[in-house]
């Protein structure tokens, strides 16, 4: 198994004074054909930091976080995860993905596998962990997201909130250093959103590095270190939540906040 740590780092010979950022994005540009989806994105996320990304539909939020685990390929600029730059090298891509967990808007649980099976498939086949051990790990994470009793059920038998918590547990089973969330509560009924947010808050309080695309502003206020506002493929504004909500600097940010907080 190739581990992220086995790759030589650019700053290996450096003094070690500045630890590598969890995620470092410099001058990132991405096009879909002629459409310029991401525009000169610079973003440095340090270990343990919690980032909330918001912005109107089509502003490039999903594209940005999908570039971080290379579900999308970027065209210009660089993305480094844990100090290691993402390239086309499939080994690097795989090693990086192992360090990053991702939670999708529509869960993307594997419907033909039980929740437990969903959770052990990657640890067993990627990390070569024995089944018994992997199941034990999976059960502990299912307990942490408070659905231990659902282990033997199939995704279709669970409610949306339970499915999303199962998806979070599945990602955690790979012991990621970074978690990406792409609108994890948008597909859920209002009364169920809270149970997923609570799970995410617990995760944040445990010190997980998180990048969350969400429009749950209460969640942003409570746990975000920084809120990022995107529009038309650019980062328009970055601020601590208190400032971001009380005193947005940009007109576009104000308009956006007026629309979603009323």
């Amino acid at each position: 198994m190739t581990n992220l740590d086995e790759f030589p780092r650019e700053d290996e010979a450096g003094t070690g004074i500045k630890p590598p950022a969890a995620v470092e994005i410099i001058g990132l540009n991405k096009w879909y054909g002629a459409y310029h989806a991401l525009h000169d994105i610079d973003l440095r996320v340090v270990t343990g930091e919690r980032i909330v990304i918001c912005g109107p539909s089509g502003s490039g939020k999903s594209t940005l976080i999908r570039c971080i685990n290379r579900l999308e390929r970027h065209d210009q600029g660089s993305i480094s995860v844990g100090g290691l730059e993402l390239t086309d090298d499939p080994k690097r891509v795989q090693a990086t993905r192992r360090e990053i967990g991702m939670v999708f808007q529509n869960f993307n649980l594997f419907p033909h596998m039980t929740i437990l099976e969903n959770c052990v498939v990657a640890p067993m086949s990627v990390k070569k962990i024995a089944r018994a051990q992997a199941e034990e790990l999976a059960r502990s994470f299912l307990a942490r997201v408070r659905i231990p009793e659902q282990a033997k059920k199939y995704p279709g038998q669970l409610s949306g909130g339970q499915q999303q918590r199962a998806a979070i547990a599945r990602a955690l089973c790979m012991s990621p250093r970074i978690m990406l969330f792409d609108e994890p509560t948008s597909a859920l009924d209002p009364e169920i959103i809270k149970e997923v947010l609570d799970t995410m808050i617990a995760l944040a309080n445990d010190g997980m590095t998180m990048l969350c695309v969400t429009h749950e502003m209460g969640f942003a206020r409570q746990i975000a270190d920084r809120v990022i506002f995107m529009d038309h493929g650019r980062i328009v504004e970055t601020a601590a939540p208190a400032n971001f909500f009380a005193n947005p600097q940009q007109v576009r940010t104000r308009q956006f906040l007026n629309q979603i907080l009323r």
Binding site: R98, F104, P111, H112, R170
Partner: peptide
């Protein structure tokens, strides 16, 4: 497509995704 993406996001290779996720479905 989300099924394949979820597989990649978990660090699985395409062969595993094909065998464990796509074909059984």
């Amino acid at each position: 497509a989300g099924q394949t993406e979820a597989g990649y996001a978990l660090g699985l290779g395409y062969a595993t995704i094909l065998r464990r996720i796509l074909l059984p479905q």
